[in-house]
Simulated scan of single mutants.
Amino acid sequence: MSLIDQLKDQMKDAMRSKDKVRLGTIRMALAAIKQIEVDTRESLNDDQAIAVLTKMVKQRRDSIAQYSAAGRDELADAEASEIQVLETFLPKPLSQEEVAQLVDTTIQEIGASSMADMGKVMGALKPKVQGRADMAAIGAMIKAKLQ
């Protein structure tokens, strides 16, 4: 079952159980996916849908930081509950050790030896860790290993 089908099924379940937060979040995710499908005039596959959900989670984390800094805890809590719903549809996150192992393996496969090869390593790693690890943290890890 595709991720989009799972979202639609979960939306129906949320309607039945009258879970407004879950329902609103799933509808928002489906709307974001649909918008991209309309803009690009092609259907998204699971990897592309995961990328959309990952971006939504990242946006909510940024919002939480801003709301907390402004003392708007009720808005930060609402964003946190949306993150919890979105994360149920994302793949299980990789541990720090798994990420380090993937980085080491990819550096060896590509034969990267300097900072000039960082883009190649990031390009090779992105499909492997999409939605499962923070690319900024991976970038820092690669930079530390290639210096």
Rank of each mutant, 00 (worst) to 15 (best):
Ile4Thr: 14
Ile4Phe: 00
Asp5Arg: 13
Asp5Ser: 14
Asp5Asn: 15
Lys12Asn: 09
Asp13Ala: 12
Asp13Pro: 02
Met15Arg: 13
Met15His: 08
Met15Val: 09
Ser17Gly: 03
Ser17Thr: 10
Lys18Phe: 04
Asp19Ser: 03
Lys20Trp: 05
Val21Tyr: 00
Arg22Lys: 15
Leu23Val: 07
Gly24His: 06
Gly24Ile: 06
Thr25Leu: 00
Ile26Lys: 02
Met28Cys: 04
Ala29Ile: 00
Ala29Val: 05
Ala31Met: 10
Ala31Tyr: 06
Ala32Trp: 02
Val38Asp: 15
Val38Arg: 14
Thr40Arg: 15
Arg41Met: 15
Ser43His: 09
Ser43Trp: 00
Asn45Thr: 11
Asp47Arg: 12
Ala49Arg: 08
Ile50Gly: 09
Ile50Asn: 09
Ala51Ile: 08
Ala51Ser: 15
Ala51Tyr: 02
Val52His: 08
Leu53Ala: 10
Lys55Arg: 11
Lys55Asp: 13
Met56Ala: 05
Val57Tyr: 00
Lys58Glu: 15
Lys58Val: 09
Lys58Asp: 15
Lys58Cys: 04
Gln59Phe: 08
Gln59Met: 11
Arg61Asn: 15
Asp62Asn: 10
Ile64Cys: 09
Ile64Gln: 11
Ala65Gln: 13
Ala65Asp: 12
Tyr67Ala: 03
Ser68His: 05
Ser68Ala: 11
Ala69Lys: 13
Ala70Ser: 14
Ala70Glu: 15
Arg72Gln: 15
Arg72Cys: 01
Arg72Glu: 14
Asp73Gly: 08
Glu74Leu: 02
Ala76Met: 00
Asp77Leu: 05
Asp77Glu: 11
Glu79Arg: 06
Ala80Arg: 15
Ser81Tyr: 02
Glu82Lys: 12
Glu82Asn: 10
Leu86Asn: 04
Glu87Gly: 04
Glu87Ser: 09
Glu87Cys: 04
Thr88His: 09
Phe89Ala: 04
Leu90Met: 14
Lys92Ile: 10
Lys92Arg: 14
Pro93Asn: 08
Pro93Tyr: 11
Leu94Phe: 00
Ser95Lys: 03
Gln96Ser: 13
Glu97Tyr: 03
Glu97Pro: 01
Glu98Lys: 07
Gln101Pro: 03
Gln101Lys: 14
Gln101Met: 12
Gln101Ser: 13
Leu102Met: 12
Asp104Gly: 03
Thr105Tyr: 11
Thr106Ser: 11
Thr106Leu: 03
Glu109Arg: 13
Glu109Asp: 15
Ile110Thr: 06
Ile110Gln: 00
Gly111Gln: 07
Ala112Glu: 08
Ala112Pro: 06
Ser113Ala: 10
Ser113Val: 14
Ser114Trp: 00
Gly119Asn: 13
Gly119Ser: 13
Met122Asp: 06
Gly123Thr: 08
Gly123Leu: 04
Ala124Tyr: 07
Lys126Val: 05
Lys128Pro: 09
Lys128Trp: 11
Lys128Ser: 09
Val129Ser: 01
Val129Met: 08
Gly131Ala: 10
Ala133Glu: 03
Asp134Val: 09
Asp134Thr: 05
Met135Gly: 00
Ala136Ser: 11
Ala137Val: 07
Ala137Gln: 15
Ile138Leu: 04
Ile138Thr: 01
Ala140Trp: 10
Met141Thr: 01
Lys143Tyr: 00
Lys145His: 03
Gln147Thr: 13
Gln147Cys: 01
